[in-house]
Amino acid sequence: MVLSSVFLLASAGGDVVLTDHLRSQLVAESTAAVAGQSLRLGLLFEHEPLWHTYWVNPGDSGLPTRLRLTLPDGVSAQDVQWPAPQRFDLGDIVNYGYEGRILLPVNLLLPAELAGPSLSIELQARWLVCQEECIPGQASYRLQLPLASRAEADPRWQADFQRATQAQPKAVDWSATLSEQGDAVQLALHGNLPPQLAKARWFPHTPRLVANSALPTWQATVQGGHWRWRKSEFFSALPGQSEWWLRLGDETYRFVARSEPTTDHAEGTGK
């Protein structure tokens, strides 16, 4: 499969990159970089209608978008702040990803001793863009920002960063455990849970645990509830812990579940 071709357009910010069915650009939330402060960048994707790229867990097929930054000495990057994804149901296949206009933010930490006239940032990105067919793509980006004593929000990208912030999941400290139940994986939640949790739409952040196309069965318990999915065909073993996202209405939550060790008495193990 041939990687999509890249075309660059001059822009007041980073260069605009045109690839198959996707327009992308590296942008900054601020007009300048300030030593000793944080700086938020974002890879801005604009998909052609009906085309999509993938979340950190792409689901039953696809590949996650990968970002690799090259930064000056002393500058460090935090993890990508993935916005809540969409669910794409394609027959027996379910994928998680993004369509339309979406920003993938990354927070940089700038040292107090950072000096010079400007800050130069490079990014290499790889993705898979799909509709009825899938096309792998890649591009390199370069963004240069002046170093200054203060910075203002860049009005060109302000709405994109605001939407990305609003789409961030709310971290919650729920009591959650994951266990193997024969050919199924069971998630148990306990404690002060939101109402209507039985109607949640699930997005397993940790891949290759559950069959994404199989909706979970749910059972209420005195302390909370149990959700059970059929195992993914790629399942090998429970990780020590796993991350889960779920959506209720317009709110997305994320939490971590610890795995219970498989015992000889686990249901359906036959051990």
Rank of each mutant, 00 (worst) to 15 (best):
W174R: 08
L178C: 07
P195K: 09
R254K: 14
A153L: 08
V222C: 15
D160T: 01
A214D: 15
A188L: 13
W245Q: 14
L9H: 15
A115Q: 12
R163H: 07
G97R: 07
E46Q: 13
L114P: 07
F235Y: 02
P261V: 04
P49C: 01
L39C: 02
V185S: 01
A237G: 06
R150D: 15
S242L: 11
L128V: 02
L44G: 06
S175H: 11
L103D: 00
T262H: 11
W127N: 03
S38E: 14
V27Q: 03
I102W: 00
A164M: 05
E113R: 12
S76K: 14
T165M: 11
T19G: 09
D79G: 12
S5H: 08
D92Q: 10
G191Y: 06
P169C: 02
Y54H: 13
R201G: 13
G42I: 00
F7H: 15
V80R: 01
A148D: 14
L22S: 07
A148S: 14
S175L: 13
Q186C: 08
R126K: 14
F45P: 03
D79P: 11
N212E: 13
S4T: 04
T53Q: 03
R163S: 10
R258D: 15
T19S: 15
F255E: 07
C134R: 04
D154K: 07
D183F: 03
G74L: 05
Q196T: 14
T31N: 09
P261E: 12
V6E: 13
L109A: 15
P169I: 00
T269G: 09
V129D: 03
E180M: 05
D73I: 02
